[in-house]
Amino acid sequence: MKLAKFFFIGVLVICAVNVQAKTYLTKKDFLAMAFSQDNTSTSESGETIEPEKKTLWLDDELQSRIRAIIDHNYPKLRLKYWQKNNQTVWFLDKIGKERPISFGISIQNNKVDLIRVLAFRESRGGEIRMQSFTEQFNNISIDENNKLDQSIDGITGATMSVNAMKKITRMALMLDKLVNQ
């Protein structure tokens, strides 16, 4: 049994030599995914419309609206987002329990059409990146109180990560409404 003990510890040491970051998707890849889903990529004159990178400054009034959703100010002065027709794409971070989770969110006609976990840094709750879970957010929107209009079935042991994803989705939908007003 001692041999097994030493063998296992040896394997762990070898494995530890080459550790890699837990990034699932780059922003560039997410943008490609999000805008490849769009069918309205040409203007009336037949010209190809490229997504436009824009900036949204988070002033006090907007931070107040964000705070009502995520319980704190978003720790940025401004957000960069991409827009093409009625579609916007946002890259937002939210701490689940301890470390920030990076999300990519694409919104079309005020509804989520794609959401992915780009990077996960928490100890527990990584199941939120599963497609079967993220698909629950497809076509979800918010009501007048910025609450999700559909329920999301959670994941045992990942409550805080699930809550973080729900809140960041509400925030993205609210921002989408704002820039499309």
């Binding site: 720790p75 940025k76 002065l77 401004r78 701490i95 301890e98 470390r99 920030p100």
Partner: peptide, 19 residues
């Protein structure tokens, strides 16, 4: 300047976490 301010205001900037 914006990035410098944001790096200080980002709660995720700290490597130490308390809960």
């Amino acid at each position: 300047t914006v990035e410098a301010v944001e790096s200080n205001m980002a709660s995720s900037g700290s490597k130490t976490t308390i809960g």
